[in-house]
């Protein structure tokens, strides 16, 4: 019975239209599908290559190449996001330095209420290497339930389970090893 319920849940989640997977007022949680959002492709070829995007224009984050996507919902103006920025950078560096994670885990940040200029300022100030995107009018923020920042989402973007949220967390980052262990754990299940 338990297995049946689990399968039914997975089937229902997979059948749900992307935009309906989570309500506009609900924060994403494990088991949800990522809400249907579009981002402008980065201007730099390096960052487009990192995400596996062949050209400029709008893209769906679920089409990023890899198996797992880590999304940080942040704001340049949020002092907690400022304090966490070095830890988030260390996570990205650890992923890129890991033979098991590099290429399979991608990271992006979405700056809620931030203009392109403000996101770029945050990137430069903290020397952030992974792609950041502005959400100047809080459109994405509203679609993810206006979560407090920083907010972290790990979602599956592999071909078998595209866009399923595996884990979410708010506030201070876990210890680096705990976060990378979590990523390795999700990859081993894939």
């Amino acid at each position: 019975m338990k297995t049946f319920c689990l399968r039914l849940t997975v089937v229902l989640l997979l059948l749900a239209p992307p935009g309906m997977a989570t309500s506009a007022e609900k924060a994403p949680a494990a088991g949800d599908l990522l809400v249907d959002i579009r981002l402008d492709a980065p201007e730099t070829p390096d960052q487009r290559a990192y995400l596996g995007l062949s050209e400029e224009g709008r893209f769906d984050p679920r089409t990023i190449t890899g198996q797992l996507l880590v999304i940080e919902i942040f704001s340049m103006y949020c002092p907690h996001c400022q304090r966490e920025a070095p830890a988030v950078n260390r996570l990205y560096q650890a992923i890129e330095a890991s033979e098991t994670l590099r290429g399979r885990v991608k990271m992006i940040g979405i700056g809620v209420g931030n203009s392109a200029y403000e996101v770029d300022h945050f990137r430069k100030h903290y020397q952030i290497a992974f792609p950041l995107f502005p959400d100047e009018d809080f459109i994405i923020h509203k679609s993810v339930g206006e979560v407090r920042t920083p907010f972290f989402i790990i979602a599956s973007i592999g071909p078998n389970d595209k866009g399923r949220v595996l884990w979410t967390g708010a506030g201070t980052m876990d210890k680096l090893e705990a976060f990378t262990n979590r990523l390795n754990g999700f990859l081993s299940l894939d």
Binding site: S75, H80, V112, G113, E146, R148, T149, G169, A170
Partner: peptide, 14 residues
């Protein structure tokens, strides 16, 4: 403030 920048449950000090 709480909706946008206040800390999540992991940030106890605030």
């Amino acid at each position: 403030l709480l909706a946008v920048v206040a800390p999540g449950p992991c940030i106890a000090q605030n």
